[in-house]
Design a binder for these strands. Structure first.
Lengths: 342, 342
DNA sequence: TTGAAAGCGCTAACAC
DNA sequence: GTGTTAGCGCTTTCAA
């Protein structure tokens, strides 16, 4: 491979000048610049990134912590969508993405070790289960963080407006005449679970509907079996005071709800309405198609990338406690109808 | 950050010795080794990868070319699944994955430029649309390649047994009594399209069923609109000689087939059977659920990683023209039934 | 078994 | 505007 010395020799200038050309320094004669460029093209010169990183301490690498209960990895419909738009924006700015993992096995802060090893310039926290402690440690160690799922102390965040989304979907049910609305709550260890459950309670209160313990149940994990189990439990405990609608706090839970209701012989939406949250790809494909709230994953990824680039270029102008909420959108499909008035 | 010099000072040995300890050299005294390790742990030493790469010319980075018509990116159900298992195996061996992109914009061989810039140790070709020319150029430039979708000259490949899979699904239709089987062909510019179409023709011939031009149609692109367009065309041209079953060469095409048949008032499978190829996640969720052939994405990713590691460790023992075919599996669901005997 | 020192390819201070 | 050179943190030869 051609080095900067080869370019220097070929062009007749010094390595310093060549370096300046490649780093867009101001004080280089236009003619000189041109000759250097011609020489480097001629011999096929590409700067050695490792050498650059060694001296500048800039790797042009962004680490991503991408982890969820289901271990679906890349194809995870929610995180995958966010990451895709984040990635393509960062790439345009010259950064590449690597996935941080926990294979540096002897330490408690495994992700942090990986950050150090790769010398990443920044870290995207896209995980529903990364402990606060490790997130904070990574930021404290000097790695520029942006979060897209959890809110961590002093780390700017981009995420959906769960309060608004919950209100949209519950309000829609309300206008359809539903007053007895059950909720299957996503794991409360996740922020999404907590925020959506809180919003559910707020909504009931605002409408003057009493909160009933028998109409809510929490999923232990973000997994299909866990969701099914929760749904079965819920249905069993409210048999004599059956809801007219069920709000599943996450689409995958809603899929489980639909499946089990159908298995038990209920017609959706005629006997009971079902709604979800997220608008995963599947939501429009299952039968009946799911009324839900859309999270705008593309925008979340984009804003996260913007925030990251801003921090990378001038951290001073970013408020580290900033929380950017992204609008959600109601998607009415076939799993809902007017409540029966008996 | 602590450097190797700090460890040397702390432990009382030279940097050369410290380096030998970290690189598992044989000739280091056990006591010495222990002291070095203690010292480095004490000061939190992590080797600087850029410095290592600069001298060893090994980046522990694998580039992935991940590109398809639909630009779905990471969440692409087929490639995403393969990549996930490839990635986790490579990570265990100490490699990280980066995505090669085309943002190095002035050259014809953009992916190659990115390979050089990042100095990757190997490249996974996971693309249905990467030209032979560029693939070969990357391998020729000294980057260890493995392909999982296309077959390129002198690059080992792992991919599904399209011939076998096609035979499985067509044979199943045959046993159900179907003799008039139409095919919607995936883009013939893709290997999957060509192999599956060829297998379709072979099957007909073997069964003594004449091939009819009016019963086949090719999709222009791997996209939903393109699939819909092809399906409409097919249905129009075989109206007076209607098939009893349609073989869609890719699940997404099958989704389009189902949708359009239903729109036209056909009952699936009673009026006509539909089968696909791939077993995407959606296949089991749409209505009616799709009878299809499962590609084992997990195994494909795994074998590709094994092959890559083998090449990386000792390229001599790998046959560069090797093509590893992965078994497919028939998945019978609700989109098929016995052919009506009029 | 250990250490001294050259060199990997680059940037950036400083001198001219 | 341009060039000289030290040094980024590491590996590896060679000598001891």
């Amino acid at each position: 491979m051609a080095t900067i010395y080869d370019v220097a020799k070929e062009s007749g200038f010094s390595v310093a000048t060549v370096s300046k050309v490649f780093n867009h320094y101001a004080g280089v004669n236009a003619k000189t610049k041109e000759q250097v460029l011609i020489a480097s093209k001629k011999i096929g010169y590409i700067p050695n990134l490792s050498a650059q990183t060694l001296v500048t301490n800039k790797s042009w690498l962004i680490g991503v912590i991408f982890k969820e209960d289901l271990e679906q990895g890349l194809v995870h419909p929610h995180f995958g969508g966010i990451l895709e738009s984040f990635k393509s924006m960062m790439e345009k700015a010259g950064y590449d993405i690597i996935f941080l993992n926990q294979n540096f096995s002897n330490n408690e802060l495994k992700y942090l070790e990986h950050c150090r090893y790769r010398n990443v310039d920044g870290v995207l926290l896209a995980s529903s289960s990364l402990p606060e402690k490790e997130a904070v440690a990574i930021e404290k160690a000097g790695f520029t963080c942006v979060s897209v799922e959890n809110i961590y102390r002093n780390i700017p965040t981009v995420l959906s407006n769960n309060e608004e989304g919950t209100r949209q979907i519950l309000n829609y049910l309300y206008t359809l005449g539903h007053r007895k609305i059950a909720m299957v709550i996503p794991p409360l260890k996740s922020l999404a679970g907590r925020e959506r459950f809180q919003a559910y309670q707020n909504f009931l209160q605002k409408q003057g509907i009493p909160f009933k313990e028998d109409l809510v149940i929490e999923c232990e994990e973000y997994s299909v079996p866990s969701a099914c189990e929760a749904v079965e439990k819920l249905l069993n405990k409210c048999l004599d005071d059956f809801p007219t609608a069920i709000f599943a706090g996450y689409d995958q839970i809603a899929f489980a709800v639909e499946k089990i209701l159908i298995k038990r012989g209920y017609a959706i939406p005629n006997d009971i309405s079902v709604v979800g949250f997220d608008d995963l790809e599947l939501a429009a494909s299952i039968t009946p198609t799911l009324t839900t709230v859309r999270q705008n994953r593309k925008i979340i990824g984009l804003r996260a990338a913007e925030l990251m680039l801003k921090r990378l270029n001038d951290d001073e102008q970013v408020n580290h406690s900033e929380i950017i909420r992204i609008d959600t959108e109601l998607k009415v499909r076939n799993s809902t109808c007017r409540a029966r008035t008996n």
